[in-house]
Structure formats: C-alpha cells, structure tokens
Design a protein around this nucleic acid. Structure first.
Lengths: 402, 402
DNA sequence: CTAAGAATGTACGAATCTCGACCAAACCTC
DNA sequence: GAGGTTTGGTCGAGATTCGTACATTCTTAG
C-alpha cells in the first residue's frame, strides 16, 4: 500500500521475471476489459499486440475459475466468419467488499468484479462519539451483512473515509465532524476481524476509482474526480494511475488558496477554495440576496429558482459556477487532466449548471492544442463511492507489478 | 512522444514478451545507477531482486558497447570477500544533444549519459523576428558546434523551450516574447536536418528532468521543480514519472489564480500567481517602498539589502517568500509531491530565503503523517535546463516499455 | 444445396529469458 | 598458510511468448 514517502528513496524497481510477466499480462487483459467492455479473444489479441494463441492461454484459467464468462456470440462482421465470443466478468464472481464511512453513517456493499452491486447495508453511529471501538464494531456489522459466508473468493475490502487518512497504515488521521476517530487504525483492525486484505483511502480518491473502473473514467488516461457539497475534494488519475502522494496526503484541494486575504476558512487560513465553492458560501450568499430557504439552499434548489426567474437567483447561479470553475481551471493549468467528473451536490444543478461551469473554466484558460477541458457530471450517482471502494481493491490487485 | 489526449481512450497496453522483458530490465538496471550512483553487479542484484547471473547477463552488452565502465575496486567490507567492481556510465559515452531555446538566445550542449557536459555553444537571434527559418538555422548551427562528427552513438536531441509547446508533434505553440515562433514545428524540422530523434518539451519540465536524472530528484519518487524569475513554471515528477498532460499542456502554474479579483495579469485575468511571485511584483513593491535599484531588483539584491538592515527590505523579503509559498502550498495540498526544487532567481536569496519559503509553506498546511514538505534550491545552477534536455531524451529512451 | 471465403479459437515447435546451483578469484582473519 | 566470505562467471532447467498450421463456424455466390 506504500507509495513512497516525501523525498524518500524510490524503492528499487524489481526486475521482470517470466512469473511476473504472466501476472502482468493477465492484469492487462483484464484492464482492457474494464476500459472497453466485453471483448473477444481476437479483439484482445489485436488490442494488446499479442497473438490469439497467447490470449487464449491467458484467459483460459480465468474462465475456468469463473472470473470471466463467454457471452452470446456477437453479430458477425459483413463478409462472414466465425462469430466472436465476447468475454466479460461474470455478474457475480470475484466479489469485493466496500465501505463508505462518514460522520454518523456507514454504508457497506458487496460489489462484483464487473461493478454489479450485489448487496448493501447501513449502520449508524453517534458522530461525536469518543468510543472508536463501537465504530469499528458497526463497520464489521455492516460488512457481515453484505459479505457472503463463503469468503474464499473474496478479493478484499475497500474503505472510503470522508476525512484525512494515512494510506500507508490504513488509519484515519482526522475527520472534521468526528474527532473521536482521529488516529484510529481502521484498516488493520477490520482486516484482523474479517481475515481479508483491507485498503483504506480518502473518499474523493475512492470516488475517482469508481469513475476509473466503472464510470466515465473508463479508458481515459487522465481525469480528475471532484466531490462538492459541504466540503470539496479531488481524486486524480494521471496517466492511468491514481495519484496519492506520500501516505495519501494529496487531494486536499478544498484548502488551496484561490483568494489570498479572502474569507476566513474553518481551517484557520483565508481564501481557501472551500470558502467560495461549498454550501456555506452558497447559503450565506442566498441569505444575503434574500432567496427563499437560503439556509438549506442546494445547487438543485438554486437551479430551480433560477429557471423560474427568481430575482437574484440567476446571478448567484452564475457566480457559484464561476467559483467552482476557479479551482477547476487552476487544476487544468497545472496538470491538465482534460476531464473533470463532478460528484455530489452540483450534479443536481443539471445541464445548465454543468455548461455554466464548463464555460467559465474554458474562458479562464489559454488555448492549447491539447484541447479544451471537459466538465461532466457523474453518471454513477450515489453508487460512486461504494463502487470506488471496490475500485480501490481492484487497483491494488491489478496494479501492474512490472 | 504521445501521452494520451484529454479524455481520449488510453492506448491499450501491449503485453510483456520475453524480448520486451530484457529491454525493461536493462532500463531498470540503468535507472538504479542513475538513482543511486555506481553499483556493483552484486549490489544491483540485491536491489532488483534478480540473481547475480541475470545482472551479469544484462550488463555484459552494456560494458561491451562502452556505455558502462568498471571502476576501481571498492573498499572491502569488514570480514573480507572479493572486492566489488562498481559499474557506472562512461564519462563520455552515450552522448546526448541538448538545446535550450529562449527569446533571443539559444544554448546547446553535448551531455554524456552520466551527466557530464562535454561541450557547449551559444547562438543569438532577434527575439521579435518573424523569420522562423533563421531560428531553426541557429539551432542547427549551435547543435553542429557541439555534436560529434561521428553520430552513430548519439541517442537523440532534447529541446527545452521557454514557452507553450505541443509535445505530441514537437512544435512551439506560443512564446511570450517571441511571437514569430508560434506554431513552428521545431522538433520535426531539427530531426530532419540532423537525422536524429528529437524530443521537445516545456522548459520547466525539462528542468525537472534535469533534477530527476542528475540533481536532487535522483531516487526521489515524487517532487516538483519550480522555475522563478520573470515568469513561473513547474515540472512535476509523480511516482517516478514526469507528468505532461495531453500534448504537454500542463505545468502552467504561473497562471493559476491565487487571489481572485487581484492584480491584472498579462494573460488578461486577475490574481494569477505570477502577479505576486515574479520580478514584476518584486520590482513594483521595491519601487513603492523606495528601495534602491528597485527597477532591477532581484531576490539576491533584496537578500543583501535585508541582511544589511535596509528599511523595508526585510518586510519585502518576507512578503515575497510568503507569495512564493502560497502557490507551493497549494501544490502540496493537491498533489503532495513532498519535495520542491527551486530554480532561477530565488536561488540567489540564499539559505535565509529558502528557509523563509519553507517556513511559510509549512505554516500553511495542516499536519499529516506523510511528512512536512521540503523546499530545496537547485544544486545544478545554470546547467539544470541543458542537463534536463538530455534527461528528456533519457526519459524517452529508458521509458519502461512494459 | 454446395462450395469457396473469412474470421475465430486451438495445438505444437522454436526462441529467449530468468532462476538456481556450482565454481574460480580475491580479500580478510586467525 | 588455512578457512571463511564475497564477487563474478558458466551451465542446464523451467517457463513464457511467438509464429505457423489446423479445425470450426458463419456468410455469400452460384
């Protein structure tokens, strides 16, 4: 789970042995299936440059173990020929446990390798509790409710945490609204109790992996997945790999300064992006403008007000889009992921809001042949994070060892 | 040279064949030598996990071709044993051409694989010229002056450009002070004339590769290399790989907004980091404070004024450090590279300036077990970019094909 | 209805690489 | 000088992919 400490020596890369080659090749075949969808052996051979014979040898054990299944023959190309048998993940095989831990609430799911949610469960806990043990118990209960009794096939469990984490040891560093959980080594504790490997990571990063394996990030080499709402966070896939930073310390985009000397942030500094791109700003502005239900304002209700032509709503709608675009444009300037997948509250702003953000982002950037950045709203809805928990496990299991 | 377009489908990874394995393994052995320094076969075997027999087979052709040489036997470990023969790059072999193109000025060098600058040359051209052909001629002249007549061993040529580039085709998109070069496909033109592969990239990115292969970035998994002075730019190495973004459109950190509604930037927007973290701001402030030689103020002269206790200098010194820290802290929040290697004007501010920046960066970040970010001044001095041009070629040549 | 064409999936030998074991060389300690 | 330790080289075994040839299954033409 380690990814190199700040300034620490890079671990010396291990050489490619034949044993590793077959593992890497298997991972690449599976990755192609994730990225593109069902593919025949001949398709895979063309894509990977290998011969059909090699692909056959690689997929045979996967079919025997039930990981992959042959689907119905595909329609034949004009001119005839033997119809191809597309391969894809069995709807139920290779189950992965997934947990989303938020202050006061635990969601768990069982997800198949192909991204089917096979079971879900919820648990509650008092957000301000100091009894971290009871939270661990609740996580275990939620997992027990979804994990099958037969745990031989289980790959592992992914846990997404809405707070700062240490991905090296799998512990929680700090959660804003649940201070009692600070320092809790949730990953090892859960791993001991259920006897499976556990991968714990930041919520927006898990969400990004949901997009990467099961959403609009499939087959895309670089993109950023942004969560908005009460807070703001980002997970980034760069050149096909999720980026964490040492011990998972990256992704805290909400506290990048976009307005030096601006509003006070709850982090103590001034002008963080969070001060102008989250509910707090939206609701304060809505109150200032005298909009109805300002204290519970969301992007969805604002969009409806603006559509109805409510005085001031249109202006706030545009300003909020501009504020969101500010941080996105900064990210594009630095890393140019090219695609931004937005999750959370903003999605309810609808196409009008999406295009307003995209327009503002593009207006803020100089032209480059690399192309204009695209803003997309997630199609995974509330499944994103739980699928992302599974993606966390997949990313580790399929991580190319070479 | 392509690295995937924005939102474009990731190219399907090619499978690992035995033929590619040996190439990849050779690259890893060389990378270990770059990261760590001279190593014996036994050292390499321990580091890579391979057997000494395998390492022997890998390095033999490299020794025969003269790429590597056996150095004098190393001192023996206590307890005895046959003294190890450290291997390292021959001081002259594997020569790489390097070009640094700035408005009005061309620097060229011949660099050995081990980072020895074997020859240098300069050419001038009128910055505002519209005759792009004459600039290409000047580049060729500079290269002819440094490249050996025998071009069989030459690996390639790297070109670092102080402006926006398209790394896919190797062309210049725009240079601020040399608008006549916009759209010039310099890479292909030079490649045709000298008959070698040419890799063209953004100046700060080349500089980062200089750090990565020959400077403080050796063996470090992630870091950011920042250029400061008239403008500001960044090159990033994340998890061991340089990040470009589609067609090399990333790295424009100078035009990220850190002060929405702030000073007008030459890019047309307001509050770009460049407006408060480059010479322009420094000189304007120095003028406002009535400091001597304000119009030619640099960090070096400011540091000397502050050391002498000149009124106002100390305050400006601290404010400039704060302004620089602002953008660095943002980068650390998002990506957490952990190490920031600074180049250009700021280096002349000395240790006092370095520690002032580091202090300001750390003060702006919440604590995380990932560790505190470190700020370092480049030890490569003015060689950074030319070494980086060679690093550009190395990164492509040694890019792990698997 | 039959035969040719085309594409998919499988079987077998050749080539190549790494691994493991063994051996000679060089140095230290006793 | 003998024994131990470490380095570097040699050789056969095992594993994997590649190239080629072959069986299978569908379309299309006559």
């Amino acid at each position: 789970m380690t990814l190199g400490e700040a300034g620490a020596n890079r671990p010396a890369p291990t050489l490619v042995s034949p044993a590793m080659a077959v593992e890497a090749n298997r991972a690449r075949v599976l990755q192609a299936l994730y990225d593109i969808g069902p593919l025949s052996r001949a398709d895979l051979a063309r894509l990977t440059g290998a011969t059909r014979a090699t692909i056959g040898a690689i997929v045979l054990p996967l079919l025997e173990r039930g990981l992959l299944v042959e689907r119905d023959p595909a329609p034949v190309a004009p001119g005839g020929g033997k119809p191809a048998r597309p391969l894809f993940f069995s709807p139920t095989s290779w189950p992965i446990g997934s947990v989303h831990l938020r202050p006061g609430r635990i969601d768990a799911a069982l997800v198949s390798a192909g991204g089917n949610v096979l079971a879900t469960a919820q648990e509650q806990f008092p957000a301000r509790t100091r009894d971290a043990g009871s939270v661990v118990d609740a996580v275990i209960r939620a997992l027990d409710a979804v994990l099958p009794k037969e745990r031989d096939d289980l790959v592992g469990v992914g846990i997404a945490v809405g707070g700062m984490v240490d991905t090296d040891v799998g512990s929680i560093v700090a959660i804003n609204l649940a201070p009692g959980l600070a320092g809790l080594p949730l990953g090892p504790l859960v791993s001991d109790r259920i006897g499976l490997p556990v991968f714990l990571d930041l919520h927006p990063r898990a969400q990004a992996l949901g997009d990467r394996w099961f959403g609009q990030g499939r087959g895309v080499s670089s993109f950023a997945s942004i969560y908005t709402g009460e807070a703001i966070g980002v997970g980034m896939v760069l050149d096909g790999a999720i980026h964490r930073g040492p011990k998972g310390s990256g992704g805290e985009i909400g506290h990048t300064i976009v307005q030096a000397g601006g509003q006070q942030c709850r982090c103590g500094r001034r002008g963080c992006w969070e001060t102008i791109a989250t509910h707090r700003w939206l609701r304060a502005e809505a109150g200032r403008l005298g909009l109805p239900a300002a204290r519970t304002m969301t992007t969805g209700t604002l969009a409806r007000l603006a559509a109805k032509g409510h005085p001031g709503a249109d202006e706030l709608f545009e300003n909020y889009a501009y504020n969101l675009a500010l941080g996105i444009a900064n990210l594009q300037q630095i890393l140019a992921p090219g695609l931004f997948i937005l999750h959370g509250d903003v999605v309810f702003g609808g196409e009008a809001f999406r295009s307003a953000i995209e327009r503002n982002v593009r207006a803020a950037l100089p032209p480059h042949p690399g192309g204009e950045p695209r803003i997309a709203f997630s199609e995974l809805q509330d499944r994103a994070t739980l699928l992302g928990g599974a993606g966390l496990v997949l990313s580790h299991s399929l991580q190319l060892a070479v």
